[in-house]
Amino acid sequence: MKILVAVKRVIDYNVQIRVKEDGTGVVTDNVKMSTNPPDDNAIEEAVKIKESGKASEIVAITVGEEKAQETVRKALAVGADRGIHIKADGIIEPLAVSKILQKVVDKEKPDLVFMGKQAIDDDCNQTGQMLAALLNWPQATFASKIEVKEKTLEVTREVDEGLETIEVSIPAIVTCDLRLNEPRYASLPNIMKAKKKPIEQINASDLGVDVKPRIEQLKVEEPPKRKAGIKVSSVEELVQKLKNEAKVI
């Protein structure tokens, strides 16, 4: 079995993002970038499946600028076998990414495609589902547990009400929740070895996918600051306000 894992390079989750004054986006120059956190879970799960003997190859793929390769390199350091970097600059919307991935799936013919459930930069939460639609494959989103069976996967999903379990036949798309596993650290010798693993570079334009954004970002701004309300003088007053004014209890 072959697993394709899609990873994205985003601003590190610890970095306090800063909105550009001209409203065109957020500052990314000299800002620490990392792999989108749930994508790390996706790689980890693929590596675990391979370690259990149920998969034979893991291919890590990313779409983005030259430096996006770093995320593929990291995936290689924790257990992916080879990498693919689709070069594309600027904002690539989930729809375009899923069309690119569709082309790659056609060529690579993986049995499973894993990725994080959502990227922490644009917070779209679309790519996995879109790819599933384009391929007409089943989708198991927000996975917190994956059991690989003969020709199917049993996936536990994190939904609002609790947990839902579904069975999808292979080939399938799985998007991963942070609760799925604890990603391993890349060891130094493995980082060394990863430097020697191959990463194939392909220009997005060569795939014949139109990556032009369909959504125009008119303005990016800081969220409005919350203003202080009132001070109440007693618990009685507080409860009355909550009941009658705010109507929340």
Partner: peptide
């Protein structure tokens, strides 16, 4: 976007 640390008009 960015977990609510910025708002985008699209």
């Amino acid at each position: 976007i960015y977990a609510g640390n910025a708002f985008a008009t699209v």
